[in-house]
Amino acid sequence: METFTKQTVQITLRVNGENHSVEVEPRMLLADVLRHEIGLTGTHVGCEQGVCGACTILVDGAPERSCLMFAVQAEGREITTIEGVTPDEGMSELQASFQKHHGLQCGFCTPGMILTSEALLARNPNPSEAEIREALSGNLCRCTGYQFIVDSVQDAAAAKAVNHTNADGGSDKEGA
């Protein structure tokens, strides 16, 4: 029988603006390294085949599946997990909106939903319902039936638009 020498690699991952030096085997998935090596358990793992979206993280600001990527491949990339978009105290606007609209029940899908929505709103601050549904089509939720999630994202976008207009000193409030 052939025996493989186990190889481990010392890599530095940049997660939520902090550098983490970790020793990994190349076969370790980014999702598992985030959870078990770095201790960021907000990244959830559901299907491990790219279907459910629970493990979605942002890589250089774009949503990607952390279960379909080896940790060694994330070297030099800017990783954002749910911990990275959560303020030290309280909740982000988007998170508060999910709470307000009952956009979650068990919460398993929520980190992936929030991160995908963050990326959507960063690109498209005022998405239509269809655009929200399209963006979130890769994130499964077994609890809410999606409508409340769409409401949450829509309301967060509207709130942002209003805040933005106010901050600009403009009086035009039709923003949303």
């Binding site: 983490h20 078990h36 090596e37 770095i38 201790g39």
Partner: peptide, 16 residues
């Protein structure tokens, strides 16, 4: 010792 765990997330050492 080899596992870098940021202070913020010490609690997760148990998981590790």
């Amino acid at each position: 010792e080899q596992v870098t765990t940021s202070n913020k997330h010490q609690v997760h050492d148990n998981v590790t």
